[in-house]
């Protein structure tokens, strides 16, 4: 069975890019538009890995990660942050929120896939 990835990004372009790259690598991809949507989709899709943007409306990536980590189940799912921001503050905050790893946009599909493999069970 192929591994499931949940990708959370408010940009439709990025969502489709993620789906495109990850599907090609054999992942089963679910998309969400922001953190709040991500939490719903997380429960629905029970992913093996989550990839999330940081800067999103409604619920940003930090809040999303924090919320995932507080869940009763699925709280240990690896979460990769995909962001154009490379500021150490952001990185640190993401880590404190509970992020598993970082990928700086723009991403190379290959690197993305290898990063996902790196943290997936």
């Amino acid at each position: 069975m192929s591994k499931k990835v949940l990708a959370v990004d408010d940009s439709r372009t990025m969502r489709e890019m993620l789906r495109h790259s990850l599907s090609a690598a054999g992942f089963d991809v679910t998309l969400a538009e922001d953190g709040a949507d991500g939490l719903i989709k997380l429960k629905e899709s029970d992913p093996d890995v989550v990839i999330t943007d940081i800067n999103m409306p409604v619920m940003d990536g930090f809040e999303f990660i924090e919320n995932v980590r507080k869940l009763k189940e699925l709280n240990r799912v690896p979460i990769l942050v995909l962001s154009t921001e490379s500021h150490p503050d952001k990185k640190r905050r993401a880590q404190q929120a509970g992020a598993t790893g970082w990928i700086v946009k723009p991403f190379d599909p290959e690197k993305l896939v290898s990063a996902v493999h790196r943290v997936s069970p």
Partner: peptide, 23 residues
């Protein structure tokens, strides 16, 4: 981990629900 902190879990459960409407 969460069983030990049921109150917190409740809280986080409620929080996303509130925003769900918006999405």
């Amino acid at each position: 981990v969460v069983e030990l902190k049921p109150a917190e879990a409740e809280e986080t459960k409620a929080a996303p629900k509130k925003v769900v409407k918006k999405t």
